[in-house]
Write a protein that binds this DNA or RNA. Structure first.
Lengths: 247, 247
DNA sequence: ATAAGGTATTACGTTACGTTAGAGTCAACT
DNA sequence: AGTTGACTCTAACGTAACGTAATACCTTAT
């Protein structure tokens, strides 16, 4: 499917689709040879998810964070979104009640406190973000931490040592090209390491790399080992994922 | 009431209130002597209205346009907003249905077309703006036009002559101060003129003046008589309204 | 009179696109 | 084969609705 088709189907502008591509929120496979974006069925589903989250007031950054979380599963998300939408409907009902009261109040039929005049809306913060955070927030870290806690003391120390070794090695070579042999070898170790404590597909691996630069909590910790390491790792991870994907 | 109080009551940030003041959407009477914004009960009601429109997806510019329309009445607005909110609830119900279908589809229980996957959302345009336009849009002009049409040919020509005369006079003196005697005299004629074809309170008069510079359709036509005339008129009209208000 | 909390005014930053502008693509029609 | 019209791309600047300091004044409680 081409942009226009998708655009009309989903009721969003073409520019919006371009934008989502730009920020890496929804990147179709642009095979067309002449650079045209071609959207697959899976892309459509992802777009649907994005729009649900958007309706619920999430920022694109948060949406990306959530959907890139290694534990993200569409079916789970649908259930949660369903709950949130029902909640939102409740809030709208409240607003309708508030209107009714206000009308009555205007007619002098009832009294109304100032507080009651604003029941139903609260623009000060997104009421659904907390729930989302519980489910997906900081999940990559949580998941890893949980697994690590289950290990024996010896295993933990051994893992930590390995962790530090890989980071230091990567930091040393961070000025090489991300697709160089040495970089790919070391980033491969990283992939193996991660799969000891979690379960990462190549796509998730690539997504995680992107998060290293998008999410400053990661960037900060990673760049402790060397300025610019996060970016280097993201690039290397992307290359690694793509190379091993096709084979 | 001070900003913080209002802010907490309505669930909007202080910055938002400042912003609404800046753009002239909600300007409290700042009597406090030290420049503090003091919000009245009427201001609260206006804020409530604003938030309702916002929830329905109107831009602040549109909201301002609507609420400054000479025919705007709060009670009417409440009824219409009520209808729109009920409509919005329907759309959310559609989205919930869409989610349910998607879940079933994922389980392989039912088939689903691409179109069905996006039923409920349509971000391409605000569905309520048309309705609003019918009620309030271009209303100042419409109202005047309607009245003018009812007049005899002679009366119409006479009015048009008067109209042109006033504009030309105003254009001549547009470099005077808006609160000078001559400016106030001529703008007074304009107020009298407008009330021949409509029914303008001093507040509506002031609001109309603001619209001369906010709405470029007005600005363009007015500035035909002289560059900067629209701004001059707005200022003069504001002074006129305030001076005659208190007496 | 001094600290704590509220408020005001700049003023620059940010998000999520809108809006041209300039140029290449594709399918259909003469 | 040439042209047209609908579609696509990237690049880049514009906009709306605030967020986020920074700096300074006001007010009241101690």
């Amino acid at each position: 499917m081409h942009v226009k088709e998708v655009s009309e189907l989903a009721g969003v502008s073409i520019r919006t689709l371009h934008h989502y591509d730009e920020i890496g929120l929804l990147t179709p496979k642009k095979i067309n040879g002449s650079g045209y974006r071609i959207y697959s069925e899976a892309d459509l589903e992802r777009l649907q998810q994005i729009l649900f989250f958007k309706e619920l007031g999430f920022s694109l950054k948060k949406i990306k964070e959530i959907m890139n979380s290694s534990s993200y599963k569409q079916e789970e998300a649908l259930e949660i979104q369903r709950g949130m939408l029902i909640d939102k409907r409740k809030r709208i009902d409240k607003m309708i009640q508030t209107i009714d009261k206000t009308i009555q109040n205007k007619k002098g039929e009832i009294q109304m406190t100032d507080k009651e005049k604003f029941e139903g809306f609260d623009f000060s913060h997104n009421p659904y973000e907390d729930e989302a955070r519980k489910k997906w927030g900081d999940h990559v870290v949580d998941e890893s931490n949980a697994k690590i806690k289950q290990l024996s003391k010896y295993e933990r120390e051994s893992l930590e040592k390995e962790f530090n070794d890989i980071y230091r090695k990567l930091a040393e070579i961070r000025h090489e090209s991300p697709d160089s042999d040495i970089a790919q070898e070391k980033i491969g170790l990283w992939y193996v390491y991660l799969n000891k404590i979690g379960n990462y597909s190549l796509d998730a691996f690539k997504g995680l790399g992107q998060m290293y630069v998008d999410d400053e909590r990661f960037t900060k910790n990673i760049d402790k080992f060397g300025e610019g390491l996060a970016k280097f790792m993201r690039d290397a991870m992307a290359v690694y994922a793509e190379r091993n994907q096709s084979e």
